[in-house]
């Protein structure tokens, strides 16, 4: 079993924009690798630097936000390709949890299997949080998966996430292989009853 994740606290980093797809999170040309190690330096690569290697001023390059582990984003974050390279690159960069208006489905599942809470808040709450973080990079944000509350300073917001992902994080079954492996007898039974090979 993996480690239960009930609470997480850390500083935030704002990444603004709806429909940020996984090609933007990690362009395909950086996926020529056989391990996920070291992908963090390529996270948001083409959003960070232009063709001449000049910085575009992305928050991932802002010295104030280096190592801040809570990404705050907008709607449909992580849409597109199923590449786990995307959450792996974010994780390798230092992200440990995401707060967004909404997530694409495969991406949310990928985050969950890496033990990274992908939590949703309302549009106005996300905007507030993004503004807070942009004004105060050092502000500590707490995510409580038991109460589904997000707090920063004296402010508190109500969050949500699919119950199954939440349960898996709370009881430490998010690293799914161990849980799935407990049912070999039933797996073989289902396989044996299928009308195709």
């Amino acid at each position: 079993m993996s480690v239960p994740i009930k609470k997480f606290s850390g500083k935030g980093i704002s990444v603004r924009g709806n429909d940020i797809d996984t090609d933007r999170i990690i362009p395909a040309r950086f996926m020529k690798c056989v391990t996920f190690k070291g992908l963090g330096v390529y996270a948001f690569n083409d959003e960070r630097v232009d063709g001449n290697g000049k910085s575009k001023g992305h928050s991932f390059d802002d010295p104030e936000y280096q190592g801040n582990p809570i990404l705050i984003g907008n709607a449909n974050f992580g849409c597109g390709s199923s590449r786990e390279h995307a959450p792996q690159a974010l994780k390798d960069w230092g992200i440990r949890a995401l707060l967004c208006e909404s997530f694409a489905e495969i991406f949310a599942g990928n985050c969950s299997s890496l033990g990274m809470p992908a939590v949703t808040l309302s549009k106005s709450d996300i905007e507030q949080l993004q503004s807070f973080v942009e004004n105060e990079p050092k502000m500590e944000i707490s995510i409580n998966l038991e109460t589904m509350k997000v707090t920063a300073g004296s402010r508190e917001w109500t969050a949500s996430m699919p119950e199954a992902y939440r349960n898996a994080l709370l009881d430490g079954s998010w690293d799914s292989t161990a849980v799935l492996s407990q049912a070999y007898t039933e797996i073989d039974r289902v396989a044996g009853e299928l009308p195709y090979i």
Partner: peptide, 17 residues
């Protein structure tokens, strides 16, 4: 479509969550 952690799960158990 699945992520790599699910590819691992399917290889190991032929199932996924």
């Amino acid at each position: 479509g699945v992520g790599t952690s699910q590819v691992r799960d399917i290889l190991a158990t032929q199932t996924m969550a």
